[in-house]
Write a protein that binds this DNA or RNA. Structure first.
Lengths: 212, 212, 212, 212
DNA sequence: CATGAATGAGTATTCATTCAT
DNA sequence: GATGAATGAATACTCATTCAT
């Protein structure tokens, strides 16, 4: 790993734990094992570093979501695969993911962070999910529901459970799978049949092998 | 309004907008129209002020939720009334509520804030909701589901939609009512009948008359 | 004890322990069990209170030294009685005396304290001692030594041992009596005879009954 | 002189004049001609700077006292040389020495200063002096006296005269030499002979060439 | 007499940023 | 590429003092 990569990883962890304001450039440099001068040498200002760290994680997540929602399957299946991939990603990057909880349009952006650039970047997450919902309504696996709002509600559902799992002290083992079922029950057009969708697979359903 | 109350209200707004670290005591004093010395005179340290501001809002919300979930009705009804009351509260206190989004165990607590005191305070929100779920399972209005996790998922649903509505630039008009239906569809035991629950009433269903 | 007296006593203790700058008016009020407004009501500014507290102790000490050095006896005897009275006083007022260690021309006066008023007040201590030395030289009990400097050296001897006893963690039990002998050996004109002076009596030679 | 050294020297002067609480970091930076940020960059907190400044002077003084009390001579001679070296040091560093008057176990340590670290450091001064006294008692140049207490009394004598000279407005020219004679008369075993000790030499007997 | 609300100057400390090496 | 010396703006907090009740 180059020193530049080390700085980026350290920034993701530091900002994820402490937030933009409370994390310090010196702390990032310390975690990365480099002098603090090198941070600005590579990434410029603190805000630039923050966005670089967040966007790097966002890009990885977009890749994963795009990959998971492609291919065969009903729209409802794809919604389920989207959720599973999202949850999987949070556990895969347990220490680096939290920056996305902070640097997102669903969170309070701290002053000094350019909100427009963030909203633009994260619109993609909603768009991919909305595409799955639309597909499901078209193929009959999902009830006729308002597309945009339904995507937002599901996304809120996802983030809500991620927050519960990562941040709270409450007992939430297995909440990710339950959340997928919760959403499925609400969306599915033919609950009686029960066979309109495939079971999801999550690499790290309970504990997994997180980074670091 | 006494100056002490003015400081508390100003703190709720300032911390809600900017967060614990980024908000400054000077800013709070300025919003309240008092000298900054008076802030520490009444509330001590910044952290004490932060918790006082958050707990004041939490107490108000607990009162509202307790009141709304009492009385007649099925467990599913009570879940619906809980959600309606919660959403109502966010719109009623549009400028003072956000501190509860930040100072909660579902959020990253900024360094310097005592996490235990927060978790203890907010456990009540989950407990009330869990009580409604248990009641619904007992009276047959809600499917047999894991009680604790279901309460957490619903709570995550609520907070997810509040975040979408208050923080994102996405089009989310009416998302609160849709979220209630989303949760209802997922929980209800007899979807066919459709009559196990009563329509909810929200004082501020779309825009309302927020504070300030 | 009136509240005014309580404030003065509290000030002597607080300033003695913490010094002028580090002690606070609020702390003095707290020790005295009165509101801090009352302190300035009675004593005006912090500096005025400081000097009032110090001068009150100084006046008590001057009375004691004057009383002890009067009456019969050789000059050397009077020097010995002066020292004994001084040491006695420090033990009698163990918690209130230290302000005199701080507020004296032999100490660094903290900025904000009027040095002239202090030097004027404390000149009396040296003058009384110098009078004893002069008497001793005249009556032959003390060697012919420079009067002023000898008084200053003895006074330094006294204060040095008081500091050792009150402030240091070093083993110094009985140091007051040894200091008197140390000074006597240095001053006496006829050491061989050994009978030119009377034994001193100290009320609290080792531990005593200090105030508070 | 590097900026770091300049800060240390400035701190010695500022703390010596004003004391720990009253001296400000800003003042130290101003005297050293550097920005105040550099002070914490090099020395951390104000307390760390205070101890660094005091211990630097203490180390210099220990070196001087050790050097002066080594070599040939009776124990009484060594006590005299110890005193001469001590007095010499105070005049050599007239503006930087006073911090040792403040930051010593013989002074009130201001709140915020670690008393144990100070007591440990300054125990050496007493130990060296006690060594000389013991030597003198052994070789017969000093009367049989309690070793520890005698060392403490002499040390108090020294500090008393230093305080008189440096701090008071009283006429004290030549007091250092008189103090040495005062102590000598008290300690010497054979005053009649008068030849058991050598005359001391002080580099700066009256005014000298102080620093700065 | 007595209280404490209210003010604002002053201080230590943190930290992003720049720049010479 | 890499370091850390150097700066100064910003902030939480303390505290003496004033004044209305």
């Amino acid at each position: 790993m180059t020193k530049k990569e080390a700085i980026l990883t350290a920034a993701q962890q530091a900002f994820g734990q402490l937030g933009f304001t409370a994390a310090t450039v010196k702390d990032v440099a310390g975690r990365a094992g480099v002098s603090f001068g090198l941070v600005s040498h590579y990434f410029g200002s603190k805000q630039d570093l923050y966005l670089a760290a967040a966007f790097d994680m966002a890009d990885r997540l977009v890749d994963k979501l795009s990959g998971s929602t492609g291919g065969e399957g009903s729209g409802l299946d794809k919604v389920r695969r989207y959720m599973a991939a999202y949850f999987d990603f949070t556990e895969e990057h347990r220490y680096r993911f939290p920056i996305l909880l902070r640097c997102s349009p669903f969170s309070h952006l701290e002053p000094g962070v350019d909100a427009r650039r963030v909203a633009e970047k994260f619109g993609v997450f909603i768009d991919i999910l909305k595409g799955c919902v639309e597909e499901g309504i078209a193929d009959g696996s999902i009830r006729p529901l308002p597309r945009e709002k339904t995507a937002l509600i599901i996304y809120g559902n996802i983030v809500g459970s991620v927050r519960t799992s990562l941040l709270t002290p409450y007992e939430s083992k297995g909440i990710f799978l339950d959340t997928i079922e919760h959403v499925t029950r609400s969306l599915e057009r033919h609950p009686a049949a029960g066979g309109c969708w495939q079971p999801v697979e999550m690499a790290n359903a309970d504990s997994g092998t997180p980074d670091h």
